[in-house]
Design a protein around this nucleic acid. Structure first.
Lengths: 191, 191, 191, 191
DNA sequence: AATGAATGAGAATTCATTCAT
DNA sequence: CATGAATGAATTCTCATTCAT
């Protein structure tokens, strides 16, 4: 029970203040547990952070994977994936902010590298989808790892823009702006 | 003289450790000045940070603007800009890491918003280039602000990837991966 | 337990060195607690100072009030009050020095005004005693607030003098010197 | 020229913020001189403070002494002195606040004791006036040093009260409240 | 499992003072 | 006489972590 409360409280505190300005005191308050309880469940601040990030990214990856369906054109597949990721980003914006922006310098080496590994896996997953899609397409000579990584940065960037100007932009425009870019490397075979 | 030394020392310390883990003590040591000197030139840590970021982004923006030439096709124009930005990112990687990744939560409100403003101006600049380029092209219905913002996130993301795996990837692949994406929205008139 | 130790240590340090030269480090040492403990119990130096002053003046006021008895001539009443206050001043000289002398400029606005309020209440209390006493006496046209305030300044001033020259003066002379002054405005009815 | 400017600037800064919160930086700014100039004229902060206090008290003492006239009744003499002191207090309130309230703990031992000496001299002067006046009067058994010291505390206290509530009280009430107290120990011979 | 008082290392910041010009 | 950049010791305050209950 407490563990769950702490994870939720931690997501809020970390995403609102960033890893460093987040304090264990505040997390305890937000979670309605005593400070000692934090340390009963998690050995340290950075381990709590890692747990949140790990569980968060696992959840998001699973959700995105669930959009995969068989027998649909790869272009549509990619589109679905991107659409789903954007939706998840906007729905779980706190978690997303953590995952995409708080993985920066200063966090202790070990945690940092484990989290980077999680992110790399996600890039790898998207990369494979692109590659697979491309097998049916006609564009060669593209480095899919790089492109996948770039697309994730692209999505992060525009979702942040959207969240800061929710009235100014339209959710559809986000997906559109990416699809416009990648549709040409994902041309169907029959063409 | 001292001021210059501090700016240089600050860039190193901030980009290596991030805003929060960076300490004024270390900055003083790196800069070879006494701690008090830091405060003689900059009223606070966050103001030093802001100064570094402001001067840094101004330098980068100016450099990128210098690639603009008249009478060349807009697609080439954009390509030059992106190429230049990637080169600058990789050359001034410390500064770039600061500008692209350290603008996150936790930094004090005022500094944060001023820095966001600087970034927004940069997005705006790129956006205008895209728009102008497009006037000669044939694709409509694209939100240039969003696309420009996304492209910047894309560049940041792949440059970081590159810097962490310098042996694995090739600098040309970076530029390529973007150009492949945007060349289709930047088709020349005569087509 | 710690809180009590800190209050005691704080009284000593503050009265010995004044608010500004008193250091939290020293207070921690005097109180035999770690520096962090100070901040666990009191949010800041000025809040610790305020707590000490507030609790101190409450104690003193209560003690002085306890000297009030019914059915004794007002002149005697006043005499008892003044005698008691002087005794308390000399007994709790550290606290008294704080209350009477350390409420000066430089302390942060909020603390300062709250402490001034405490002092004003004390003036008010003495003023009422004078006024009540006077109802039985014969002197009119005196501003009791001003007189009460002045008497407190008088007491402070002579007690300080006494404490700095304990061998030179005699405790009785202190009370005497005031009573000689006010006995004429506190003449009994029957006269 | 500079010296004079610094003294004036110092009085303002010290009385507004107290000795400790006053900063040499601010004094320099208020005085329109560079910080180095401060140290050209005064070896240290506490020596500047001492200079201000010494010159100030000398000025005030001289002014009060000037009210002395020959061949007037001692009671009237005392009254004139007190009236003059109150007037000076209110006219030079900044300086007065310094002289009466900023002589507290924390200031370095040497300066402190010299300033205390100045104050003692002033007490002594008033004491002599009381004593002399009394020779013509009829009250014995009073310690004039103590009474003089108390009266000075009384005056300080009520002047502070007045300055904080200038609308509430009347300047005449201040003098009155003291004279009412001391007139009885200053009865003329012929009575 | 859970608590919260206590800790102390580490950080930012201040400011009187110095000194080369 | 006057300056102001540079200094560094001292100070307040923060906060992750521990531990007895």
């Amino acid at each position: 029970m407490s563990r769950e409360k702490i994870i939720r409280g931690g997501i809020g505190e970390f995403s609102e203040n960033g890893y460093f300005k987040a304090s264990m005191d505040n997390i305890a308050k937000r979670s309605n547990v005593a400070k000692g309880t934090l340390y009963y469940h998690f050995k340290s601040k950075s381990l709590l952070f890692k747990a949140i990030l790990t569980e968060g990214i696992e959840f998001i990856t699973k959700e995105v994977r669930n959009t995969l369906k068989e027998n649909i054109p790869p272009k549509t597949q990619i589109e679905k994936i991107i659409e789903r990721q954007i939706d998840l980003y906007l729905e779980y914006k706190e978690l997303s902010k953590l995952f995409f922006n708080e993985i920066s310098n200063g966090i202790d080496e070990e945690t940092l590298s484990e989290v980077k590994c999680l992110k790399a896996k996600y890039v790898s997953f998207l990369s494979k989808q692109l590659e697979e899609g491309n097998e049916w397409g006609h564009i060669k000579n593209i480095n899919f790892e790089i492109t996948a990584c770039g697309i994730i940065g692209y999505i992060d960037s525009i979702c942040s823009l959207y969240l800061e100007n929710e009235d100014k932009y339209n959710k559809h425009e986000l997906v559109d702006s990416i699809m416009r870019l990648i549709e040409n490397i994902m041309v169907e075979n029959e063409k």
